[in-house]
C-alpha cells in the first residue's frame, strides 16, 4: 500500500522546502497544504482523504497549528506532532512542570498571577538577575533579563498593559550561569538527529538562531544523549527540539520545542533531518 503524507504550512521556510524535497527524493507523495486557505467542518468528523495517513504540521503560528492538529486527529488523521505534544511544548509553564515531574533537571521557575506577586517573587525569593518569559510564543520574543528592581518594575508594568491575558501569567525563571551558548538537539522519534551549540549573536544575550545566533556542531556524551531522549519521551515523542544549557552544577533542559526549526542544525551537521522526518512519518503511517 502506498502511503500519502501531507504538510500543513502557513509559511514555507527553508525547513518546509527541505521536507518537500526530501519526500520527492524518496518518491513519497507529500501534499503541501496552505493552512491559511483551509476551511474545516468540525461537526463532520469523517476522515478527510486530502490529508493522507499522516499530516506533518509545520505552521509558524502556534495556535493555528494546534487547532488544525486537534481537528485532523479527530478526523482520524495521525499528526506529527500529536496534539498532546504540541499543546504541552507550546506552553512553557506546562512543559517546565512536566520536565520537573519526570526528574529532568530544569531551571528553577516560579509562577505568579499578578504584577505584585511577581515582584515579590523577585524581591523575596528569586533575586536578581532573573528571567521573565511569556508562557507562549517564541523566537525569544518578549523574553527579558531582569537585572534589578527598576528593570523588573518597568517590565512588569508593561506586561500589565498588554491585552493578551496570557501575559498576566508571570513565568519567572532563575538566570542560569552559562557560557554564551546553549545546546539545541533535534530529536526525531526515539533518535537524536543532530545536536548543535547555538551561540548568542554579539549584540544579544539570547541564543535563538532567529535572533542571529550562530551554530556549531555539538558532540553529545552518552549521559547527555540519554537525558535529551528522556526529555523528548516525557513530552510524548515526536519531531522535537530539545534545548539544554551547561551550568556549573551540570546540564539543565530548559525547553522542548514542537515545531522545531532545524536550519541551523542541518547546515552544520550535514544530517538529513528532513529525510528522517519523512521516514518517521512513513513509519507512523504503517502502524
Amino acid at each position: 500500500m502506498t502511503q500519502t503524507l501531507s504538510l500543513l504550512y502557513d509559511r514555507v521556510r527553508v525547513e518546509e522546502k527541505e521536507i518537500i524535497n526530501a519526500a520527492q527524493k524518496k518518491g513519497v507523495e507529500l501534499r503541501p497544504i496552505d493552512a491559511k486557505e483551509l476551511r474545516l467542518d468540525i461537526t463532520d468528523l469523517s476522515k478527510d482523504e486530502i490529508f493522507g495517513e499522516v499530516a506533518i504540521e509545520r505552521c509558524v503560528s502556534h495556535f493555528r497549528g494546534l487547532y488544525i492538529t486537534s481537528i485532523l486527529e479527530n478526523k482520524g488523521v495521525d499528526v506529527i506532532n500529536p496534539f498532546s505534544v504540541a499543546s504541552l511544548c507550546g506552553d512553557k509553564l506546562l512543559c517546565s512542570m512536566k520536565l520537573a515531574k519526570a526528574g529532568i533537571p530544569t531551571p528553577r521557575t516560579i509562577v505568579a498571577f499578578t504584577k505584585e506577586e511577581a515582584m515579590k517573587v523577585l524581591e523575596e525569593d528569586m533575586g536578581y538577575p532573573a528571567v521573565i518569559k511569556p508562557v507562549f510564543g517564541s523566537w525569544g520574543r518578549l523574553i527579558a533579563p531582569l537585572k534589578d528592581r527598576e528593570t523588573a518594575q518597568a517590565l512588569l508594568e508593561d506586561r500589565e498593559e498588554m491585552g493578551n491575558p496570557l501575559y498576566q501569567i508571570y513565568y519567572i525563571q532563575e538566570m542560569v550561569e552559562r557560557p554564551p551558548r546553549d545546546i539545541r538537539t533535534v530529536v526525531v522519534g526515539d533518535q537524536i538527529a543532530a545536536s548543535i551549540y547555538r551561540y548568542s549573536a554579539p549584540d544579544d544575550w539570547r541564543t535563538n538562531i532567529a535572533r542571529g545566533g550562530r551554530a556549531e556542531v555539538c558532540n553529545l556524551n552518552d549521559e547527555l544523549r540519554e537525558l535529551i531522549l528522556k526529555a523528548a519521551e516525557v513530552v510524548g515523542t515526536g519531531v522535537l527540539g530539545v534545548d539544554a544549557m551547561e551550568t556549573k552544577e551540570g546540564i539543565v533542559i530548559h525547553e522542548v520545542n514542537s515545531t522545531v526549526e532545524f536550519k541551523g542544525a542541518m547546515s552544520v551537521s550535514e544530517v538529513d533531518i528532513p529525510g528522517m522526518i519523512i521516514d518517521y512519518a512513513l513509519q507512523k503511517a504503517r502502524k
Binding site: R11, S61, F63, F136, R141, E261
Partner: peptide, 10 residues
C-alpha cells in the same frame, strides 16, 4: 505576507 504574530515561532 502575514505579519509576525505573537504566537509565531518555535
Amino acid at each position: 505576507a502575514e505579519s509576525e504574530g505573537e504566537d509565531w515561532g518555535e
